[in-house]
């Protein structure tokens, strides 16, 4: 039962990736100007150079053949060469991917550490001062765009109070942690606000249910009762965490620029500015893959959290 469900979900993810790969491949042809000129970059457009580009990228072949050729390369990890630097795209991305993944993971972790407890406290102290304070903080957090929050954090904790570095990625684990704290916090603030709302709403709904009253009536310890409610509120919370991972990943683009971090985000900005199409394509596909994987993971987590999910809609 479970294996079948997972296989179906994995196949669905593959299908989505296949469709998106066509779109990503098409980016090159949607860019303004001729394909040859785009691929040539800033080099002089002599007839010989154009001819060389045409031959190298097989531009005389039909579109379908070119797509399959590109896809074949992609599947072997070959995204071509960067127009801007002449480096292999795979190497360029490979050297920057860890930083972005670390930043995303750190940001998500902070968001969960901030948002989950606040949401839980709000739900258990519904209507009291703590709850209202948590809700106001959550709304304020959600209203702050990450780059703006990042600038404020920079001014406050790197310039006025020189606790954290202003830019750069840092060396070693400790240095990296120190350098990534402010950017991760900037990403986490809005995400934590979202998580507070989701957690609180889901928990409040569960706490009103009969099984909680019954659990209290038969004298289960308060922690166990809270555990019952949390376990049943897990699906909406997981949904929110999935959203947070993807939004944090997307948010790294601006944050990396704000904090001058050499990650995928700053690479994407540079490549778009330069119309470095192979890199843009590779990055778009990579982000698509990461987001699909996160969604797949969330789906898998659903089935662990609530076995009824596997049986389709027929749940109570």
């Amino acid at each position: 039962m479970s294996a079948g469900f997972l296989a179906r979900r994995a196949l669905g993810t593959l299908a989505v990736l296949a469709i998106l790969s066509v779109g990503v491949f098409g980016l090159l042809y949607l860019a303004p100007g001729s394909v040859e000129r785009t691929l040539l970059g800033t080099r002089p457009a002599s007839p010989e150079a154009l001819e060389a580009i045409r031959a190298r990228y097989h531009l005389d072949e039909p579109v379908v053949t070119r797509y399959l050729r590109w896809l074949g390369g992609v599947l072997q990890g070959d995204f071509g060469t960067s127009i801007r630097t002449g480096m292999s795209v795979t190497d360029a991305i490979g050297s920057r991917l860890p930083l972005t993944l670390q930043l995303t993971a750190y940001g998500t972790l902070l968001a969960v550490l901030l948002g989950l407890p606040l949401g839980i406290v709000g739900a258990f102290r519904k209507g009291r001062a703590v709850d209202r304070a948590a809700s106001v903080t959550a709304v304020a957090g959600m209203s702050a765009p990450p780059f703006a929050a990042g600038l404020v954090l920079l001014m406050a904790f790197a310039v006025h109070l020189p606790w954290f570095p202003v830019y750069g990625a840092g060396e070693g684990f400790g240095g990296r942690l120190l350098h990534l704290t402010l950017p991760a916090l900037a990403l986490a603030i809005g995400a934590a606000g979202l998580l507070v709302r989701f957690t609180r709403t889901a928990l409040v709904r569960e706490l009103d249910k009969d099984y909680i009253v019954f659990a209290r009536a038969r004298g289960l310890p308060p922690l166990r009762v809270a555990g019952y409610a949390l376990r049943n509120a897990l699906i909406p919370i997981l949904t929110a965490v999935g959203l947070i991972v993807t939004s944090t990943l997307a948010g790294t683009v601006l944050i990396e620029v704000t904090f001058a971090l050499p990650g995928l985000g700053s690479l994407l900005v540079d490549s778009v500015t330069f119309k470095d199409m192979p890199v843009v394509q590779a990055l778009a596909l990579l982000l698509t893959l990461l987001i699909s994987l996160v969604n797949l993971l969330v789906d898998v987590a659903y089935t662990v959290a609530d076995p009824r999910v596997r049986f389709g809609e027929d749940t109570r």
Binding site: K209, D210, Y211, F214, A215, Y228, R231, N232, A305, D306, P307, R308, R316
Partner: peptide, 10 residues
């Protein structure tokens, strides 16, 4: 209500 009084996931 026997349909709501038990923790559905435990």
């Amino acid at each position: 209500d026997p349909f709501t009084l038990l923790n559905p996931l435990r």
